[in-house]
Amino acid sequence: MKNLLGLLVLLLLLVSCRYPREEGQISALKENTNLEVFADSVALERLPVKNSFTYLHKGDRVVVAELNVHATDSVDSIWVKVAHSQEVQGWIRQSELVQNFVPSDSISQFIHFFSDTHASYFVIIFFVFVGVWLFRVFRKKQLQLVYFNDIDSVYPLFLCLLMAYSATLYESMQVFVPETWQYYYFNPTLSPFNVPVILSVFLLSIWVFIIVFLAVLDDLFRQLTPSAAVFYLLGLMSCCIFCYFFFILTTHFYVGYLFLAVFTGICFQRMRHSMGYRYRCGNCGRKIKEKGECPYCGAINQ
């Protein structure tokens, strides 16, 4: 755990040293960006001819051909020319484009898909977990759950903490620097380098989340049977999604940072307590802090 935290701090220092500042950038969009219409229909103006329009429909793919600034436009000064074909092309305000188009890049498609459907997925996963939990309780079988009846590993709780931090960072960008997230949405990357610091930290938290998740799987399937591991993963998934929604909602109202500080303290206290047990009783298998008499079954461990 200490090595993992040290690596996180080192990478954060490295990415913080490279903060790109693009002077004169007028738009999150760039020329030759591929987009896809997700609205039912979109009207494009055939400028400079006034009141002349061409229409795109859901699923149509276009490319950004040109950007221009109309300083006299009181609605949106940035206009974007997109082309579907040689015959079908026209201009649209950037604000309207953002509302009706999604980049065809796989990362942006994932962000758009998750943003539109995560609430329903959360409800489904949560109620599946509750149903399975009630069924197992009814059958009087023990259910292991992160924090309450956890496995012998600090990684599941650390995974929930990472999800809380990622959600807080995501919502912080939405509240304080929405243009940064919009720029990333139209110019996605998996690299934490050559992006603004807050994006570097966010992307870094995602990579660390993946690494810790692999560590969870390794510990989980070594300690539990496959069926018990599946139930535990379902519960862990529900906990992570709950953390995601809870910290997004509370950060939007600026109290999420206080909850995050409290949650961090609780998690590290629990993880430090778990790491304090260096031995395991040879009779009952419970973790003990030192050799000698087991406080649970009374067996002598030497």
Results as ranks from 00 to 15, higher is better:
residue 126 F to V: 08
residue 12 L to W: 12
residue 112 H to S: 03
residue 133 W to A: 04
residue 221 F to P: 03
residue 116 D to K: 15
residue 171 E to Q: 15
residue 93 R to F: 00
residue 287 K to R: 11
residue 289 K to M: 08
residue 116 D to T: 11
residue 271 M to P: 06
residue 86 Q to A: 08
residue 99 Q to N: 11
residue 143 L to S: 07
residue 165 Y to V: 13
residue 187 N to D: 09
residue 144 Q to T: 13
residue 3 N to Q: 03
residue 274 S to R: 15
residue 299 A to M: 04
residue 198 I to T: 14
residue 166 S to F: 14
residue 175 V to D: 08
residue 270 R to A: 12
residue 58 K to T: 05
residue 218 D to E: 13
residue 152 D to R: 09
residue 96 E to Q: 10
residue 107 I to H: 06
residue 193 F to P: 00
residue 263 F to M: 07
residue 20 P to W: 01
residue 5 L to R: 00
residue 67 L to G: 00
residue 158 F to V: 06
residue 15 V to C: 03
residue 241 I to V: 13
residue 268 F to M: 10
residue 241 I to T: 12
residue 203 L to N: 15
residue 120 S to M: 14
residue 169 L to R: 12
residue 251 T to N: 05
residue 163 M to Y: 13
residue 195 V to W: 12
residue 259 F to N: 01
residue 241 I to W: 15
residue 111 I to W: 12
residue 98 V to Y: 11
residue 159 L to Q: 06
residue 219 D to G: 03
residue 3 N to T: 04
residue 131 G to H: 02
residue 215 A to N: 13
residue 287 K to N: 07
residue 197 V to F: 15
residue 133 W to K: 10
residue 286 R to I: 02
residue 184 Y to D: 11
residue 197 V to N: 13
residue 20 P to V: 01
residue 17 C to E: 05
residue 223 Q to H: 09
residue 192 P to W: 03
residue 78 I to W: 00
residue 62 V to W: 00
residue 223 Q to T: 08
residue 110 F to S: 11
residue 99 Q to T: 07
residue 190 L to A: 11
residue 202 F to T: 12
residue 52 S to T: 10
residue 27 S to I: 07
residue 17 C to W: 08
residue 54 T to A: 15
residue 166 S to G: 15
residue 20 P to E: 01
residue 146 V to L: 09
residue 179 E to Y: 13
residue 180 T to R: 14
residue 152 D to P: 06
residue 59 G to C: 01
residue 79 W to E: 01
residue 105 D to S: 09
residue 103 P to W: 03
residue 235 G to E: 07
residue 295 P to F: 07
residue 78 I to D: 01
